[in-house]
Amino acid sequence: MTQAIQILIIGLTLGGVFALMASGLTLIFGVMGIVNLAHAAFMVAAAFISFFAYKGLGLDPIASIVLTMPVMFVVGLVVYRLFFARSIDDPKKRSVLVLVTFAMALVIEGTLGFFFSNIYRSTNPPYAYDAFLMGPFYLPKGQFYATLMSALILGALWAMLRFTRLGYAIRATTHNRTAAEVVGVNVDRVSMFVFGIGMALAGASGSMISFLFSFYPGKHWEWVAILLSLVVLGGMGSLLGALIGALSLSVISAFVNSAYGPTWSPVTFYLALFAILLIRPQGLLGKKPEL
C-alpha cells in the first residue's frame, strides 16, 4: 500500500510535466488541424538552451524558461510564416503539412546531433538529486518544482484562453474555423500566435526535461510518441483531455516502471494508444469523427 501511494506520487508529479509537454501539441492541433511531429524535437532544442545556460551562465534550468519560452515563441512565428501560412487553407497542401513537421523533426535532430553529438546530457541543479521526506513517502524535489511550474504555466494558459480576446479567438477557431472567420476573427493571425504559443510551451517543457530526464538529440521520437499517445487518449485538440491523458498514463506507466523496469514504461503509452484506437478512436473527450 505504502509503495502504491509512493508510485502514485511519482506518477502524478511526472504527469503534470507531461501535461505541459502535450499542451502545446494539442493546442496547435486544435486550431490548425496539424499534428506537429517536431514538437518534441523543439523541446529537445530548448533543453539544449537550458543546458548551456546552466553550464555557461549558471542559470537555473527552471528559471531558464525566461530564455526558452520567448526564443521558441519567435521560432514558432517564423516557422509558421515560412512553412504553414500559405498552405493551411489549401486542402491539397494541407495534407502534406504533417510530413513537413516530420521533416523539420529530422532536420532538428540531425543538426543537434551533428553539433553536440548523441550523448546523454542533463542539467544537474542541486534539487535534481534531493527529495522531500514525509513520513514513509518521498517526493523528488526536481519533479515537484517542475510540476509546480507546469501547473503555473498551464493555469496561465487556461486563464488566457478563458478571459482574453485572443483566448476567445483561439477557442472559437478551435471549435469552428469558418464560424470564427464569419464573426471577424483573423484566423491566419490566430494560427500564427497559436503556433508561437505552442512552441513557447515546448520551450518551457524543454527546460523541465533538461533536469528531469537525460536527453540526447535522437530522444525526441520517444517523447513525441508518448505525447501523441496521451493526446489521442484525451482526444485530439482538447486541453483538458491532454491533462487527463497525461496524469492517468503517467501514473500507469509509473506502476509498470516499478513492476517491470524502465524499459517497459514507454510501452504503456504505445499500448494505450492502440487500445484507445480499438475502443474509442476519437479519444476520451474528442469530438466524434465525421460520419
Binding site: 492541433f29 488541424g33 499534428v35 511531429l37 504533417v98 521520437w221 520517444e222 513525441v224 510518441a225 501523441l228 499517445s229 489521442v232 485530439m236 514507454p266 510501452v267 503509452f269 504505445y270 499500448l271 494508444l273 492502440f274 484506437l277 480499438l278 478512436p281 476519437q282 469523427p289 465525421e290
Partner: peptide, 17 residues
C-alpha cells in the same frame, strides 16, 4: 479505424513499440 492524423501517429508508435 479513424481518418486522418491518428493513423500517422500510430505508425510512429508502431516503430518504437
Amino acid at each position: 479505424r479513424t481518418r486522418g492524423p491518428t493513423f500517422i501517429i500510430s505508425t510512429i508508435a508502431l516503430v518504437l513499440l
